[in-house]
Design a protein around this nucleic acid. Structure first.
Length: 369
DNA sequence: ATTTAGGGTTTG
């Protein structure tokens, strides 16, 4: 709904008569008080399971005062955690208790986050059903963005594509999950791609096809683009929740190591290939190590969809529509026959891109008489 | 109605 502030400037509000909070500069925090703050994220750990009942998000923020303040956010539900995706994001938090060591969320806590890129749209990210957000918030976000740009807080490259991997270095990867499989009690395999080609050969992890969620194999061409990631220990539980194909991920503090490691799950011939890279998400949360699912509407996901499926609509050999009677309703189906199916190659699946939509279709092959 | 963690690279 639209309300009006005392200064008669329009104010978008989704809640009636909420008093406007006062945001405290980070150099004016007093121990033992409950505060609302704005800040630029200079460090964060994606939510990880604590030993208590909640997930914990650990972060460090700063503002024009240059004070750096640590915060911990405890929430039982993942979706209630601040939607921080990278260093440089702007965050607004309401109702944090200052215990003199750090800020910790308290009753009535809420968080809204924004991309930190100067000049970008100021789009609030939150799971709060009601929150206030007006022109003053827009100005605060823009001021923090331009201040942070001068402080060089954003990492020089937000995430590294597979094509730019430096062996042995730690990096963040934005990717689509294509398939996954449990390997043993401490490890899960994630098969991902970002549409770019790694200049190094990629070590493949062998698992039984019947435990694979998603396709157990891809075309030889596509396999050269797929990175096999072994995630360890505390990340296994998180990996279990991930959904093949529909989930776009950012994996933080990933490491690509020359494939000298031998052991179950790796083929012996590959293990001797030192040129092959093996991807590991080690156990623990140091340096913000972890996995986050990116929202479907995030710019990073839109960009990934563009780069991982750069092709024009295929030439149709046949195209049309058909009304299909169903049990409860009647639907119209668009039917296309790809020219790929009337040539000599025999694909097992086809990847079609139409605008922003993407779908992988199994090829139905009729039995020979 | 206030525990959890309290940043700082791996068993592989």
């Amino acid at each position: 709904m639209l309300t009006f502030s005392r200064r008669a400037s329009p104010q978008v509000s989704r809640k009636n008569k909420a008093p406007k909070p006062t945001y405290i500069r980070l150099d004016e925090l007093k121990a033992g008080t409950v505060v609302c703050v704005y800040g630029v994220v200079v460090f964060f750990k994606p939510p990880f399971r604590s030993r208590g009942t909640d997930f914990c998000s650990s972060l460090k923020i700063t503002d024009q005062s240059n004070q750096k303040i640590r915060c911990n956010v405890f929430c039982e539900k993942l979706e209630d955690h601040p939607k921080i995706f990278q260093i440089g994001d702007i965050i607004r938090m309401h109702r944090l208790f200052n215990d003199s060591i750090m800020l910790v969320n308290t009753f009535g806590f809420s968080a809204v986050t924004f991309n930190g890129v100067v000049g970008g749209p100021v789009e609030p990210r939150t799971s709060s059903r009601s929150f206030n957000f007006d022109q003053e918030d827009v100005r605060t976000v823009e001021k923090l963005r331009s201040w942070a740009a001068g402080e060089a807080i954003l990492p020089p490259v937000p995430t590294i594509p597979l094509s730019a991997i430096q062996p042995k270095a730690y990096f963040d990867l934005t990717c689509q999950l294509l398939a996954k499989a449990p390997v043993d009690t401490t490890r899960t395999l994630l098969r991902v791609w970002d549409g770019t080609r790694c200049p190094h050969k990629l070590l493949k992890v062998m698992v039984k096809p019947d435990v694979m969620e998603g396709p157990s194999s891809f075309s030889a061409e596509k396999e050269t683009l797929i990175a096999d990631i072994l995630v360890y220990d505390n990340h296994v539980e998180f990996a279990r929740q991930l959904k093949v194909r529909s989930h776009f991920l950012r994996i933080y503090n990933l490491r690509a190591l020359p494939g000298s490691s031998k052991g179950p799950g790796l083929t012996s011939s590959q293990a001797e290939e030192v040129d092959h890279l093996a991807f590991h998400l080690h156990g623990g949360t140091a340096y913000g190590r972890g996995i986050r699912v990116l929202p479907e509407n995030s710019p990073d996901v839109q960009e990934l969809k563009r780069t991982s499926a750069p092709c024009s609509p295929p030439p149709w050999a046949l195209s049309g529509q058909a009304a299909v009677p169903l049990a409860s309703s009647r639907r119209t189906l668009s039917i296309h026959l790809s020219t790929h199916l009337v040539c000599q190659c025999k694909p097992k699946e086809l990847l079609f891109v139409m605008g922003k939509e993407r779908a992988v279709f199994p090829v139905i092959t009729p039995h020979s008489p």
